[in-house]
Design a protein around this nucleic acid. Structure first.
Lengths: 147, 147
DNA sequence: ATATTAACTTAGTATGGCTAAGTAATTGAG
DNA sequence: CTCAATTACTTAGCCATACTAAGTTAATAT
């Protein structure tokens, strides 16, 4: 039986491990994890710059730079909004979709490998815990990103 | 009952949420999360540059730059190894400890707050799942960082 | 009609990552 | 013992990603 404090400390440690692992998994990939994250937001269709910045918790100029690089590399294309000439939209290109798929499969593949080392019962425990993690980390101000 | 694949996809989504949340929590802090992480490695005493780089999964020149900035801000101090004149060590200063404590309390405080919204049973589920996450994210090549 | 607001971009600065190349100290081979 | 190779680190130069402040253009409101 652990106190909330101890539980929080352990979770904090796991978060650190998780961040380090994701960094290792993503090293030497063609697309950075930040770029993959933005591409994920575009899967459902074009999005406004402002929306993207808010969803990813960055300021607008940062998103401008991110989209500039993705556009330069041919992974997204900029567009305009018909009803408001100030608005700039970004959509994912075919190349972008291919890259996104690649990154996602890589990450999920690694997680699946790791799951193989868990027992049936341990997998059940994890299955039960995932929605709780979702509640712990959800942002009340912002809807969850698409992927 | 979920397949490993579905489980991995859900975990991948949770990972994204966690990263976004930790970014929000750490925004507007005096010390970046990377800096806090390095300071955490120094709590147990001075460490060599090489060790620090390996532990944090970065190359040596990156650690040099990180320590340069921390030294400039007075949060760590460089030292020398008595037995090998090539070796440079870093130790945390009093100011560094204060900053580290501040960041850690902030993060843990937020997690504890979130735990308050969980039921007793849900907390138990989480307690059972955390060690599993540790196994999923552990780096076989590298021992877990101190904090 | 014009002032304000909103949506972006540009410019400038900092952190944090990399590789390649340089320096100084230790180790090892002959 | 000498000198080449290795080890530990730093420097230099590049890129991605973050910020604020300031500029531009379009929409809104007075």
């Amino acid at each position: 039986m652990q106190s909330d404090r101890e539980l929080a400390e352990e979770l904090n440690t796991r978060l650190r491990e998780m961040v380090l692992m994701m960094r290792r998994v993503n090293a030497d990939q063609a697309v950075t994890s930040q770029q993959a994250s933005v591409l994920g937001s575009l899967e459902g269709g074009p999005r406004r710059m402002t929306e993207l910045a808010a969803e990813h918790g960055v300021k607008l100029p940062t998103m401008t730079a991110l989209i500039n690089r993705l556009e330069r590399d041919g992974l997204v294309a900029r567009g305009r909004d018909a009803s408001d000439a100030r608005v700039v939209t970004a959509r994912i290109t075919r190349d972008g979709s291919v890259q996104l798929h690649r990154v996602r499969e890589r990450r999920i593949g690694i997680l699946v490998q790791r799951f193989a080392e868990l027992s049936e019962q341990e997998r059940d425990t994890l299955t039960a815990a995932l929605p709780l993690l979702g509640r712990l980390f959800a942002d009340p101000d912002r809807p969850a990103p698409a992927a």
